[in-house]
Design a binder for these strands. Structure first.
Lengths: 223, 223
DNA sequence: GAAAATATTGACTGTTTGATAAAACTCTAG
DNA sequence: CTAGAGTTTTATCAAACAGTCAATATTTTC
């Protein structure tokens, strides 16, 4: 029987293992070269199997891509989902930023896959963005607006605020090559992450304008 | 005689016109699909000429790409070059941010070309980044540090500050598709630009933490 | 341990792609 | 107006590519 028939059926041990290996290799290729730039041959080679064998599990190139995207979006939206309306605004935002930054550190290939897709006009996931991402953002925008109304955070355009969190954090995954050129090899990747986290915290909380008067909330400093 | 011989020679009217059309078409394709994803056929079609004719002007695919990159980097670094050590820190930064945002608005294809290249590990311009971008950043980092020492801007990691300016501004070009999905069609592209500019100004100057005490510098507000 | 189900392979197909050669055409300077 | 430089096209190629198929090998199930 065909492995990928339409009926739902239990997956074999070998099936699960191989699909895993294939998707990992596919992620590597797609995130580095985009959909068109990636080739089945290279994915197969990277997964350590023959092309026909790979195509036995994923009949078309696009099937791999779609499997990756579906899986990715879940993970991707999670941090935003956790933004809690009943929490303290500033800590909530701080931990959202930190979570996004952690994702850029821990899942750079996923971030680049996503970036590639959007960069190319999101031809394959525009619908998903409209049906999944948009409503979630709309919901969280209301949360942010509530906080602004209460004076708990500065009144700004909530959607652009979200954009700036996305862009600053994902930058460390998507533009990693450039970041490394600029920062040089001195600072290890762990140190880089902490520098970035610290910087973003200051930026999003206080901006660059120096304070002459004392703050109501004291800053946390490592001792 | 061959059009692209190594010797420097005057370019024909036809040569100039065609190279222009080709590079424009190439920019369109490369920025949308990356180097590997773009095809000479499509570039030729988009430029309105036959493939062999195109290859008469640019003998290899890579030649077009390199011509575009060379041209791009000049434009790209200009705003940062203009950051003036002797100017007022906050207005200097504000106008740097605004210039970068204008570039994202006016040259989105160039921005995406660059993003694509970095995303794929910058295989073709890593050297250029090291020889051109890195020294420039190093120089401007010193400028920023000077300002921080004087207490004219908050003390933060200067390199990460630059990253955050790059990422937040270029986001509007590179992730335009996503931005449009989130913002919806209500707000025209001109309005979007102004919203983004206003938001980024607040973010970089003051951050999100609300001020209970009065500021030394009054905020500019539209009346 | 044999039958059935699943997995793997090699050989292949039609197409797209980057690139070339040479013939044919067009423009322009004198 | 013509000779030669400059431009364009037709025809072509080899390699890379997505995807198929039938035959073979391996696992799982009973």
């Amino acid at each position: 029987m065909k492995a990928r028939a339409t009926e739902t059926q239990r997956k074999t041990r070998i099936q699960m293992e191989n699909e895993e290996r294939i998707l990992d290799a596919a992620l590597e290729e797609f995130s580095a070269h985009g959909f068109r730039g990636a080739t089945i041959d290279r994915i197969a080679e990277h997964a350590g199997m023959s092309k026909p064998n790979l195509l036995y599990y994923f009949r078309r190139k696009q099937d791999m891509y779609e499997a990756l995207i579906a899986r990715l979006l879940e993970t991707w939206l999670e941090p935003l989902k956790e933004l809690d309306a009943s929490g303290d605004p500033l800590p909530e935002l701080q931990s959202y930023i930190r979570r996004k930054l952690e994702m850029a550190r821990d899942f750079p290939r996923e971030s680049r896959l996503f970036a590639n897709e959007i960069l190319q006009g999101a031809p394959r996931i525009k619908r998903l963005l409209e049906s999944e991402l948009k409503p979630l953002v709309d919901e969280k925008v209301e949360v942010l607006r509530g906080w602004m109304k209460d004076g708990q955070i500065n009144p700004v355009d909530a959607r652009h605020l979200i954009f700036s969190i996305w862009s600053t954090t994902q930058h460390y995954a998507d533009f990693d090559t450039q970041v490394q050129v600029i920062l040089g090899p001195d600072r290890g990747s762990e140190g880089r992450f902490e520098d970035a986290a610290r910087y973003l915290e200051t930026l999003f909380l206080d901006g660059l304008r120096p304070q002459t008067s004392k703050r109501d909330t004291p800053r946390v400093r490592t001792p």
